[in-house]
Design a protein around this nucleic acid. Structure first.
Length: 584
RNA sequence: GCGCCCGUAGCUCAGCUGGAUAGAGCAUCGGCCUUCGAAGCCGGGUGUCGUAGGUUCGAAUCCUACCGGGCGCGCCA
């Protein structure tokens, strides 16, 4: 319906120019309405600016919009609303195109950086947000015509590798590593951190006894010094350390890939932090040469001020005093690479809310460098447990695979119970699609900025506003269409519109708007909300009006509505990375 | 100390670039399977939209202050 809305908005603008001159001409807002098919409130919004009575303006709009062939009648209501009623014939005609989308992204490339798990740590329930939101955005952007580069910016570099190398050499349990390498690496890491903490506490005590100089001059714990040493060796290319590091990546990727396969998440490139290593020195030098960065206390920082950057941000550290680089340097290099390699016009990075400041600093730096892309940080609220924050060090993790296993287990139980006709194989497939769908939808259907307190029952719910509800509506549609096909009945033209059918048609026509909104605002829950409303309207229609038992042309008409609804549900779910089944 | 985010029904959340009577799900209570699938449908009711001001034809939405919660602030990522 976006095309119609645009045409009406333009008609309104034209009428304004005609009546009040060019300076009045601007798009007017046309939106769906509770009391009509569409409405505009622009008369009231523009009244003050044009020094006119809002009702007078509304009359101008009402007359102008009435000239559009889709419009059956217009009326002015209240303080200056214009209600727009559409011809049933137009709706009936338009519905056949409901699933089609405008290609607003054609010719543009967008890089989406998401998932980005840390090597040597297991994926747990908090990782699902970046992964699932990023994947949905990728699918939506592609559907509206963007060329999308999905980039998994793996955390495969940094100080934790020094620690891991030390811990691996000291405490490795080879058999445990054989059986489950990543959980063994996690055990080693946690053990290291505990020892580090313990040594630090001892040092603090000793220092207090010696000097009482508040520990400022305290030495680093011996174990940490050792780790730094190994890290330096790794960075200098020491073959043994490099081999270990590569091994860590290999075993981690193996596990990540298994999860990604289950989630049906795919990347076009996997360029981890280490990929940018050889670009870091040059990147920092460029920043220095251009006068964007400066030396400060031995380190290199970018400073910001309100006048040039629009925001008084704290300094952005891009090189440590010891010459080492940080993720700030890596991320700047990443921006340059992405515009250089792919000519990206949008760069979207999906992470949790804690990194907002970092990305403000990064993007401000990018703007100073003249990065010719819109840089967007798509952040989402933290996931926590009822007991508190999820922490690798505290080890209170719920593994992502554990969650997926449980999701499939519960939906298998329900599938067997609800539909005993399914073969064992079918039931398992249903459980897989429905279970994974439920988990994904649970995350996608909330506004991404909402903080999530994890709960098994909510994450795995199969009733109400959930993916299974949408999948169920789809399965019922397929069931009807199968029966029709068996009886040799085909969908035909939409001929009549009962009130419920009219509501269904209008809802179907809102698909393009929902999808386009997601591509602009990068908020997938808008599409979830839309699909849920569509399924709700369909369910009402399904319960209220017979399809196969209606007389022939009504039957063909309703079959057509079923087919369109199924198409939009399937397409919409696919854009969220959620599958459908023919029966469940 | 500075900064970001959040506060809407018992619970979980939509609605926030200002629009008509603030909506869903869960929970709860009552109907609906000899008519296309009950993972469903229909109906019942609940709100100081955190508080107090301000902006205007109109504020859950924008502004200010305060209260409550989460997170972040140069040598980790």
């Amino acid at each position: 319906m976006l095309v119609l809305i645009d045409e009406l908005a333009e008609l309104g603008a034209t009428s304004l120019r005609g009546t009040f001159g060019d300076e009045a001409g601007q798009r007017i807002g046309v939106a769906s309405s509770q009391v009509a098919d569409l409405q505009t409130a622009s008369a009231m919004q523009l009244a003050k600016k044009l020094k006119r009575n809002p009702r007078e303006l509304a009359e101008v709009f009402a007359a102008a919009l009435f000239t559009h062939p889709a419009v059956a009648r217009t009326e002015v209501a209240g303080p200056g609303f214009v209600n727009i009623h559409l011809h049933d014939a137009w709706l009936r005609d338009a519905v056949s195109q409901a699933a089609s989308l405008r290609q607003v992204g054609t010719g543009q490339t967008v890089v989406i950086d998401y998932s980005s798990p840390n090597v040597a740590k297991p994926m747990h329930i908090a990782h699902i947000r970046s992964t699932i939101i990023g994947d949905a955005l990728k699918r939506v952007m592609r559907a509206v015509g963007y060329t999308v580069v999905a980039d998994n910016h793996l955390g495969d570099w940094g100080t934790q590798f020094g620690k891991l190398i030390v811990a691996y050499r000291k405490w490795l349990d080879p058999q445990a590593f054989e059986e489950n390498p990543v959980s063994e690496l996690l055990r080693l890491y946690v053990k290291f951190v505990e020892l580090e903490k313990q040594q630090k506490a001892e040092l603090g005590k000793k220092n207090q006894a010696d000097e009482g100089d508040d520990g400022a001059a305290a030495d680093a714990p011996p174990i940490l010094k050792e780790a730094r040493g190994e890290l330096v060796k790794l960075q200098q290319g020491d073959p043994k350390n490099v081999a270990l590091w590569k091994q860590f990546i290999d075993v981690s990727m193996h596990e990540f890939d298994r999860v990604y396969r289950r989630l049906d998440v795919n990347f076009d490139v996997v360029l981890g932090e280490s990929f940018y290593n050889d670009q870091l020195a040059g990147t920092v030098q460029t920043l220095l040469d251009k006068g964007i960065a400066e030396e400060s206390e031995g380190a290199i920082v970018v400073r910001f001020d309100k006048a040039t950057d629009g925001d008084a941000l704290p300094p952005f550290l891009i090189r440590k005093a010891d010459g080492g680089f940080l993720y700030g340097s890596t991320d700047v290099a990443g921006l340059l690479y992405r515009v250089g390699r792919w000519n990206a016009s949008r760069i979207i990075i999906v992470t949790d809310e804690r990194q907002q400041l970092h990305f403000k600093q990064l993007f401000a730096t990018g703007r100073r460098l003249g990065v010719p892309a819109s840089m967007e940080h798509v952040w989402f609220g933290l996931m926590r447990l009822a007991e508190g924050t999820i922490s690798t060090r505290d080890g209170n993790l719920i593994g992502l695979e554990t969650l997926l296993d449980e999701a499939e287990r519960r939906s298998l139980e329900v599938a067997r119970q609800c539909n005993p006709d399914l073969t064992e194989e079918e039931a398992r497939e249903v459980a897989r699609v429905v279970g994974i769908g439920a988990v994904k939808y649970n995350d996608l259907s909330k506004d991404r900025t909402t903080m999530v307190t994890f709960s098994w029952d909510k994450a795995l719910s199969l009733t109400g506003n959930t993916a299974p509800y949408l999948q169920y509506a789809y399965a019922r549609i397929r069931s009807i269409l199968r029966k029709a096909s068996d009886q040799g009945i085909s969908p035909g033209k939409v001929t009549n519109l009962e009130p419920t059918e009219r509501i269904l048609v209008r809802k179907l026509l809102g698909f393009d708007e929902a999808v386009e909104e997601v591509s602009k605002a990068l908020r997938p829950h808008v599409l979830c909300e839309y699909l849920f409303e569509l399924a709700t309207v369909f369910s009402t229609f399904y319960n209220e009006l017979p399809v196969l038992k209606a007389e022939s042309d009504v039957r063909a008409s309703r079959l057509h509505l079923c087919e369109r609804t199924g198409e939009v549900l399937k397409h919409g779910l696919q854009l969220l990375g959620i599958g459908v089944v023919e029966r469940m």
